[in-house]
Measured scan of single mutants.
Amino acid sequence: NKASVVANQLIPINTALTLIMMKAEVVTPMGIPAEEIPKLVGMQVNRAVPLGTTLMPDKVKNYE
C-alpha cells in the first residue's frame, strides 16, 4: 500500500505548504502520493484542510 499526503495540522485556505504541515500515511481513498511532498512545498491550498485530512489534487492550486 502506498502512502498519501495527510495534513499534520489545520492548513488555512491559501496557505503555502511546508514540510512540517504534511505527513505520509496509508489512507483510503488515496490522495496525492507521499513521494510528491517535496514538489508540494510552496504550493498553496485552495481551501482549508483540517488536521488528519488527506490532501487530494483538487485541494492544491496548480497541482498536476
Score class of each variant (00 low, 15 high):
Leu10Glu: 13
Lys39Ser: 12
Tyr63Ser: 02
Pro50His: 09
Ala34Tyr: 05
Ala24Tyr: 06
Val27Pro: 01
Val27Ala: 05
Leu40Arg: 01
Asn8Tyr: 07
Ile32Lys: 01
Val60Tyr: 00
Val49Lys: 01
Glu64Lys: 12
Ala7Gly: 03
Gln44His: 11
Val6Phe: 04
Ile20Val: 13
Tyr63Asn: 03
Val6Asn: 01
Pro29Thr: 05
Met22Asn: 01
Glu25Val: 13
Pro12Ala: 08
Glu64Val: 15
Ile37Ser: 01
Met30Gly: 09
Arg47Glu: 15
Thr53Arg: 04
Glu25Leu: 14
Val26Gly: 04
Ser4Asp: 03
Lys59Leu: 15
Ala34Asp: 04
Val60Asn: 01
Met22Ile: 07
Val45Pro: 06
Lys2Ile: 13
Ala16Ser: 12
Ala3Trp: 09
Asn8Phe: 08
Glu64Asp: 12
Thr18Ile: 08
Asn1Gly: 14
Asn1Trp: 14
Asn8Ala: 15
Val5Trp: 06
Asn8Trp: 06
Glu36Phe: 12
Pro38Lys: 09
Ala34Cys: 09
Val26Phe: 14
Pro38Phe: 10
Ala16Gly: 07
Pro57Arg: 07
Ile20Trp: 11
Pro38Asn: 10
Val27Cys: 07
Gln44Thr: 13
Ala48Ile: 11
Met56Leu: 09
Gln44Gly: 04
Glu64Trp: 13
Pro33Cys: 11
Gly31Cys: 06
Arg47Met: 15
Val27Gln: 01
Val41Met: 02
Thr18Glu: 10
Asn62Asp: 13
Glu64Phe: 13
Leu40Gln: 02
Asn46Ile: 14
Val45Tyr: 00
Pro50Cys: 09
Tyr63Ile: 03
Val49Ser: 03
Ile32Pro: 02
Met30Cys: 15
Ser4Arg: 00
Glu25Cys: 14
Leu17Gly: 02
Ser4Met: 02
Val41Glu: 04
Lys59Glu: 15
Thr28Gly: 03
Gly42Asn: 05
Glu64Gln: 15
Ile20Cys: 13
Gly52Phe: 02
Glu64Tyr: 13
Ile20Leu: 12
Pro29Tyr: 07
Gly31Asn: 01
Val27Phe: 00
Ile13His: 06
Lys59Tyr: 15
Gln9Leu: 10
Thr15Ser: 09
Leu19Asn: 07
Gly52Thr: 02
Tyr63Val: 06
Leu19Met: 11
Asn14Arg: 05
Val49Arg: 00
Ile11Val: 02
Lys39Tyr: 14
Gly42Asp: 04
Ala34Glu: 06
Pro12Ile: 06
Thr15Phe: 05
Glu36Tyr: 11
Val49Cys: 10
Gly31Arg: 00
Ser4Thr: 03
Met43Pro: 01
Ala48Pro: 13
Val26Ala: 08
Thr28Asp: 14
Gly42Ser: 00
Leu55Pro: 02
Val49Gly: 03
Pro50Trp: 09
Ala7Cys: 05
Lys59His: 15
Met30Phe: 12
Lys39Gly: 09
Ser4Asn: 05
Leu17Met: 11
Gly42Cys: 08
Met43Gln: 05
Leu40Glu: 01
Asn46Gln: 07
Pro29Trp: 07
Ala34Ser: 09
Ile20Arg: 14
Asn46Glu: 07
Asn46Cys: 13
Ala24Glu: 08
Pro29Arg: 00
Arg47Asp: 15
Asn1Ala: 13
Val6Ile: 12
Ala16Leu: 11
Pro12Gly: 05
Lys2Glu: 10
Val5Asn: 03
Ile37Phe: 01
Asp58Leu: 02
Ile32His: 04
Met43Glu: 04
Leu40Trp: 02
Glu36Asp: 12
Lys61Phe: 10
Thr53Tyr: 10
Thr28Arg: 11
Val26Gln: 09
Glu35Ile: 13
Glu36Met: 14
Ile37Cys: 08
Glu25Trp: 10
Pro38Gln: 09
Leu51Val: 13
Thr53Gly: 12
Met56Tyr: 09
Ser4Pro: 05
Pro50Leu: 09
Pro38Ile: 09
Thr15Gln: 07
Ile37Glu: 03
Pro12Cys: 09
Val49Tyr: 05
Ala34Trp: 07
Pro50Tyr: 08
Leu10Pro: 11
Val60Leu: 12
Glu36Ile: 07
Ser4Gln: 03
Lys59Ser: 15
Glu25Tyr: 09
Pro33Phe: 06
Gly52Asn: 09
Ala3Pro: 12
Met43Asp: 04
Leu40Ser: 02
Ala48Gln: 12
Asn14Thr: 05
Thr53Asp: 15
Pro12Arg: 07
Lys59Thr: 15
Gly31Thr: 04
Gly52Trp: 05
Gln9Asn: 04
Val49His: 08
Pro50Val: 08
Tyr63Thr: 03
Asn62Val: 03
Leu17Ser: 00
Thr28Cys: 15
Asn46Lys: 11
Asn62Glu: 09
Lys39Trp: 13
Val60Arg: 01
Leu51Thr: 11
Gly42Ile: 07
Val41Arg: 00
Lys23Thr: 09
Gly31His: 06
Asn1Lys: 13
Tyr63Asp: 04
Ala3Phe: 10
Leu17Trp: 00
Gln44Leu: 11
Ile32Glu: 00
Glu36Arg: 09
Met21Gly: 02
Val60Pro: 00
Gly52Tyr: 04
Ile11Tyr: 04
Asn62Gly: 15
Ala3Asn: 06
Asn46Trp: 12
Arg47Ala: 15
Lys23Cys: 09
Glu64Met: 14
Gln44Phe: 15
Ile13Leu: 09
Thr54Tyr: 03
Leu10Arg: 10
Leu55Tyr: 00
Lys61Ser: 09
Gly52Cys: 08
Val45His: 00
Pro29His: 04
Leu55Met: 05
Met56Val: 06
Lys59Gly: 15
Leu55Lys: 01
Thr28Val: 13
Ile32Ser: 04
Asn62Pro: 00
Gln44Asn: 05
Arg47Trp: 10
Thr15Glu: 07
Met21Phe: 05
Leu55Asp: 05
Asn62Thr: 04
Pro57Glu: 04
Asp58Gln: 07
Ala48Ser: 11
Ala16Pro: 14
Met43Cys: 11
Ala3Arg: 12
Glu35Trp: 14
Val60Ser: 03
Leu10Gly: 07
Thr54Cys: 07
Arg47Cys: 15
Val6Pro: 03
Val27Trp: 06
Met22Thr: 03
Gln9Phe: 08
Met22Phe: 07
Met21Pro: 02
Ile13Cys: 13
Asn46Pro: 02
Gln9Thr: 11
Val26Asn: 10
Pro57Leu: 01
Met22Cys: 06
Met21Leu: 04
Gln44Trp: 09
Val45Met: 00
Thr18Phe: 05
Pro33Asp: 08
Ala24Arg: 00
Ala24Pro: 10
Ile13Val: 12
Pro12Tyr: 08
Met21Trp: 04
Gly42Thr: 02
Val5His: 05
Glu35His: 13
Lys2Ala: 12
Ile20Asp: 14
Pro50Glu: 10
Lys61Asp: 08
Ile13Asp: 07
Thr15Asp: 02
Ile37Gln: 03
Met43Arg: 08
Glu25Asp: 11
Gln44Pro: 00
Val49Asp: 07
Pro38Leu: 10
Pro29Ala: 03
Met21Ile: 03
Met21Asp: 05
Pro50Gly: 08
Asn1Glu: 13
Val49Trp: 07
Met21Lys: 01
Leu10Thr: 13
